[in-house]
């Protein structure tokens, strides 16, 4: 099924809104199933969900532990002396928070089925100023750019013979402190160069611009969008 990127965007927004509103594992689990089903429909390899999730594993673990410890109530499952550490409520709260993150990350994978060009086209055809549309996509591009920058620096440091894994913590903090400024400054410099490059190719020369391609919003897009918005609204109201 090839849907317009705008329709897909609406779907992602619906799914993540529900994920944010729902609180219990009993509600989030079906939502996750629906999300995964949609991914299948969009021909996204489910195993790629795992690839993305892996990057957030540590974050999820930390969040889980914090939730477990700070939510009280229910049976005490684990205690240290007389203070209860983990309660049944805490465990549930932790689990649902992790589920919520998984739903949002999975839903966001729908974004990978279209390129940033289609995203821009979609927004612009909805009369959103093109400067704004480009700004959003460039900002989205920037996160990977910062990440790449970081990966490059880490690779370069290691290739100069520094075993980052074995460096003591004090030394490591020293190292990162001395690298913070040049790396951030370097990334900003790169951003500035990109802005100059765009401008030198006529970006914002006119208040309007044309596009090589255009997107067609057809009846099926309207139908899918309507269905998703209606269901989501109904679920929210009846919640």
């Amino acid at each position: 099924m090839t849907l317009d990127p705008r329709t897909k965007m609406v779907i992602v927004i619906c799914l993540s809104t529900l994920a944010l509103i729902y609180n219990s594992a009993g509600e989030l689990l079906p939502l996750l199933l629906v999300t995964l089903l949609l991914l299948l429909l969009f021909r996204i390899d489910i195993s790629s969900v795992w690839v993305y999730l892996k990057r957030f594993l540590q974050l999820m673990l930390v969040v889980f532990i914090i939730q477990c410890i700070f939510t009280r109530g229910g049976e005490v499952l684990l205690s240290l002396g007389s203070t209860a550490l983990v309660s049944s409520q805490g465990l549930l709260a932790g689990a649902s928070l992790v589920l919520r993150i998984i739903v949002i990350i999975s839903a966001a994978l729908i974004f990978t089925t279209f390129s940033s060009r289609d995203f821009i086209l979609g927004l612009v055809q909805w009369k959103i100023p093109y400067e704004l549309a480009f700004m959003v996509t460039i900002a989205m591009r920037f996160l990977p750019l910062f990440r790449d920058e970081f990966v490059n620096v880490v690779t370069a440091i290691q290739l100069r013979g520094v075993e980052l894994k074995q460096v003591s913590w004090g030394r490591k903090i020293d190292l990162f402190r001395s690298l913070l400024f040049p790396v951030v400054f370097g990334a900003l410099l790169k951003a500035q160069q990109l802005a100059v490059a765009m401008e030198s190719r006529g970006f914002r020369a006119y208040p309007r611009r044309t596009y090589l391609r255009r997107l067609d919003f057809i009846w099926i897009d309207y139908a899918v969008m309507l269905i998703f918005i209606t269901i989501t609204l109904m679920l929210i109201i009846s919640y």
């Binding site: 290691q158 290739l159 040049p182 370097g186």
Partner: peptide, 18 residues
Amino acid sequence: GRRIGYVFQNPDLQLFCA
């Protein structure tokens, strides 16, 4: 890296000091 030095094609990728 301690045995083989490596110079990247693009110098920007390997410069990171102040």
